[in-house]
Design a protein around this nucleic acid. Structure first.
Lengths: 198, 198
DNA sequence: GTCTATACAGCGATAGAC
DNA sequence: GTCTATCGCTGTATAGAC
């Protein structure tokens, strides 16, 4: 609970993560400072350094928590939704929740700033997308096998299309806070994978 | 030629724009400084302020030039390519050129950082995407009319899907410099709009 | 058109008191 | 666990010489 450079533990640590997460998702890693978090929480910058040694460690903790949550959500979908097409829809729903908040996907935002990030963060972002693509590929393959989805080419390629399509739709929908824009684009993306040609 | 706060004119001004453009596309607006440009060009930060009053004005000039070039490229496609499906392919080719450089679309990068940008820049980025969506919608409608493209729903929604799909695929392809990933995702995107169901 | 010099704010980070 | 105080660095920007 009192360990430094650790994302778990005290209520303050969690509040820091929550604020920082929102700041990264709305302004980007290079678009916020320790000062922003400190002001919002009514503490000092120095206090932040007690919970997270530096901005790099804070960023790492953010991605770790985000990836863990995402993986848990996907595991839950796997365990409760039998149909592949329905699982894919649930995946889109996860992104829709983020878009509804007018946020960008945490890792999507970090992907844009990739070149400027500390190296461990770069790898964590990469790993997030690799894991997402792997999950999508599996669901797409299963859907094609059971007939609930239809597409040509490799599942890998279609997985990249879905992932990219969702991230990009999010990126642009945020511009005028038009979430319906995201929903429409996501729906068109899924329509292209429907077994009876759209 | 000698006007301050102006993106046109001297060779130095153009070189500044070129370097700044690449920096924004790879590192983001908040990920580079006047110092980065000055170092690369072998001049001082102070000299930069002669050509562009501030970073905001430089950013504005970047988006203006980018949008103008893009509009010219689309106008050229309109004037030389009769088939709607072929025009759409040309549009994708424009994005592929950027992805090949392992860059992000200038306005896609700025879209991620949208909330942190000076207000005039925010509007310029919005305008870029509105104009892109309008062009795409027109081509999609024409393609559906002449039978070279096929899709359900509004052309507006499919335009948002294409635009978002390309921006997102770019975003993710940059992570491991895997351009083939972008090409594959873009191809799948177009496949979903082919008149004979993929 | 580019320079030196400088101002001034903000950043991430550290030391040490409480 | 949070504070004050301070460091060193970098950022944008300006004034004025050349």
């Amino acid at each position: 609970m009192t360990d430094r450079t650790n994302g778990n533990g005290s209520a303050t640590t969690v509040r820091i993560l929550d604020v920082a997460e929102r700041l990264v998702q709305t302004r980007g890693y290079n678009g916020f400072s320790y000062g922003d978090i400190a002001t919002e929480l009514g503490i000092t910058r120095a206090a932040l350094h007690y919970h997270f040694a530096g901005k790099a460690e804070l960023g790492q903790a953010l991605v770790d928590r985000y990836a863990t949550r995402f993986a848990a959500a996907l595991a839950h979908v796997d365990a409760t939704v039998p149909d592949a097409a329905a699982r894919l829809q649930r995946y889109v729903d996860l992104y829709t929740d983020v878009a509804d908040d007018n946020r960008m996907c945490l890792c999507g935002m970090l992907a844009a700033e990739h070149r400027t990030l500390p190296e461990p963060l770069q790898q964590a972002v990469c790993a997030f997308f690799k894991s997402n693509t792997a999950w999508l590929r599996r669901v797409l393959d299963e859907g094609r096998a059971d007939g609930s989805l239809a597409f040509t080419g490799t599942a890998e390629d279609s997985a990249a299309m879905v992932l990219g399509g969702l991230e990009g739709a999010m990126l642009i929908a945020r511009l005028d806070g038009d979430v319906s824009r995201f929903r429409a684009a996501a729906a068109r993306l899924l329509a292209g994978l429907a077994p009876v040609p759209a």
